[in-house]
Write a protein that binds this DNA or RNA. Structure first.
Lengths: 261, 261
DNA sequence: GCTCATAAAATCGTCGACGATTTGAAGAAT
DNA sequence: ATTCTTCAAATCGTCGACGATTTTATGAGC
């Protein structure tokens, strides 16, 4: 499934600690909600992930309202938890928090879109240059494995799956740069890009993108920093050029959009 | 009724309920340093700024605990507000939130320090390159004005003031790049760098840094992208090289450290 | 029929409280 | 005296509730 961007060791503890000191400690046993099934191991991450995936798979189009009470009853938690997750989603620019007016799925403007891609090019160029310096032979093998996964995903023709592999590829390359901070920033940007691409791309250029990915790996494996950066830049420019502006729209309930129905 | 604040729409949560909470509160002793315009306008920003300034001015050394109850009584708000601010500070890497164990001022390790500087070099190089392309004549004038401010701050020999002007300079140059996203990332990194520099720098290199700043402006004004990037890189490498490892330590109350005593 | 004012519903921001966990100290055993 | 156990204080995570704001529904007036 989708991996979390900016993974944090947030709450490693919850009311499930009754197992540690068995016996007393009634622990309240709430579970009045609908989705409160897994003992509350890490509810926050689950909520974040649900919204995140929903946005990336277009089940939650931009502008969709995310009322706190709805999320509360859907996940069986109180508003404090939902609120925390929404704040994190806002910082990652997945949703927008309008004071006193609730949260909505972010809707990047064309201007923002351009800036996002520009920033991504800058970061990814810097990271691919570091990757050329620091990569090892084993890393190249793993990249080839990812490229192979892409081919399989292409055959499937299921867009979200393909987009996932493409994201993985870029993140993997970036990880080779060996800088967790730049990687975290890029992760954020790739999420935002994916949101945009998922919305606007005609989704018929998988083969083309795959070829460009191969080019990038080839340049890295040969230690050609200049060509690697150029290939990455060309790839990203091409990606941006392919998007066009149109807006899908449908009417579903929030539970359906989150795949919780 | 049109209460749209011209500032940031970041956290414009205002309610009269917080203002008239009264009760037997600690009376708050307003007018500490920053404008304490009550009415619950933007208490969050005030708390954030207080902690932020405290950290940057070394009143809050790394590792300092920031208990929620203490901040609550210091600023006269409930834990919900404090908690929100702490979460933001954590995302900006100013404090570290340890589950069930409270918040402490972040203490970057040497390894993290290196990565932070590396990331900053990458971002600032990209931004200064954009700045060379997009700057106007008026921008150069403003940069010269900032350089003049630096000279004045140098004469004062008050380190925090000088550091503030240096931060301003870098942010101004970055702003010329015209990319709000990269600028936001760099802002975050500069904060973290300042925290580190404030801790470890012997603070006798103001003149040296000022010279390097002048170099950068000169290269930008002449449209020499290559030299501008090189000057910026050299400046940042020099900055990193000048830091050494030592830890000051003192025992004060949290209120003193926040200048609220 | 349309527009604007009013009322009701929905939703958000903040608060105090309760249980759970961690921390720190006092006391008993070796 | 040191170490371990036990207990109390401090602190954190979550919850439900109350007032304030926004949004939506309703109805009067033209």
């Amino acid at each position: 499934m989708t991996q979390t961007p900016s993974a944090k060791p947030r709450n490693a503890s919850k009311t499930a600690a009754g197992a540690r000191k068995a016996g007393r400690g009634p622990a309240k046993t709430d579970m009045a909600g609908i989705a409160a099934v897994d003992g509350g191991a890490d509810v926050e991450q689950r909520i974040y992930q649900s919204v995140f995936d929903g946005v990336l798979n277009q089940r939650l189009p931009p502008g969709t309202k995310l009322p706190e009470p709805a999320l509360c009853s859907l996940f069986g938690v109180s508003r404090a938890v939902v609120r925390k997750v929404l704040q994190r989603l806002e910082h990652d620019r997945i949703v927008e928090l309008r004071p006193n007016r609730g949260a909505v799925v972010a809707a990047p403007t064309p201007e923002e879109t351009r800036k996002i891609f520009e920033a991504r090019r800058a970061l990814e160029a810097a990271l691919v240059e570091l990757a050329v310096q620091r990569h090892s032979g084993k890393d190249i093998e793993e990249l080839h494995a990812l490229l192979h996964q892409e081919e399989e995903a292409m055959a499937n023709a299921y867009q979200p799956a393909w987009a996932q592999t493409a994201r993985n590829f870029h993140l993997r390359v970036a990880a080779l740069g060996g800088n967790p901070i730049l990687l975290a920033y890029l992760t954020e940007l790739i999420s935002r890009c994916s949101l945009i691409v998922a919305l606007y791309e005609p989704a018929g250029n998988a083969a083309c993108e795959h070829e460009e990915h191969c080019d990038i790996v080839d340049a890295i494996s040969k230690g050609d920093a200049k060509r690697a950066v150029a290939a990455m830049n060309a790839h990203l420019v091409g990606l941006e050029d392919r998007i066009c502006l149109e807006r899908p729209s449908s009417v579903k309930t929030l539970a359906q959009m989150l795949n919780l129905a």
